[in-house]
């Protein structure tokens, strides 16, 4: 973001809204854990809220919402490899892991 063409007051108002949303999200995360959902849905819900909060941080605090093309390419690439890194070893080990127990 170049420093000259920013409406800084508007930006600061956005920051405050994001701040409020993050606090609400944190309360929701803890609240959801008291519902005692089964493990699967509980993980899904917690990760969903965390992802929403994370997206807010990345988009607004880190200004990714109006970044340049190269940064999008770079982080896109990193996210793709991140997903490989998390999922492929797990899928590969499915055979060796007894998921029934």
């Amino acid at each position: 973001m170049s420093h000259h063409d920013i409406d800084i007051d508007k930006t600061v108002r956005t920051y405050m809204m994001v701040f409020a949303a993050l606090i609400v999200g944190t309360i929701l995360t803890v609240g959801a854990s008291y519902i005692h959902l089964p493990t699967g849905p509980a993980i899904a819900l917690a990760l969903l809220i965390a992802s929403a909060k994370g997206s807010l941080v990345v988009l607004f605090f880190m200004h990714l919402i109006d970044e340049k093309k190269f940064i999008y390419w770079l982080m896109g690439l990193a996210v793709v490899f991140f997903i490989f890194e998390l999922t492929v070893p797990l899928i590969t080990e499915m055979n060796n892991i007894d998921l029934g127990s």
Binding site: T29, A42, A50, K53, G54, V58
Partner: peptide, 25 residues
């Protein structure tokens, strides 16, 4: 300051995931 901030937000971001993963699930 902006670059340092980017790093700092990333550290925050990691914690946003670590918190439910380690404490709640």
């Amino acid at each position: 300051v902006e670059a340092s901030g980017l790093f700092w937000h990333f550290v925050d971001l990691v914690w946003i995931f670590l918190f439910p993963v380690l404490y709640l699930l």
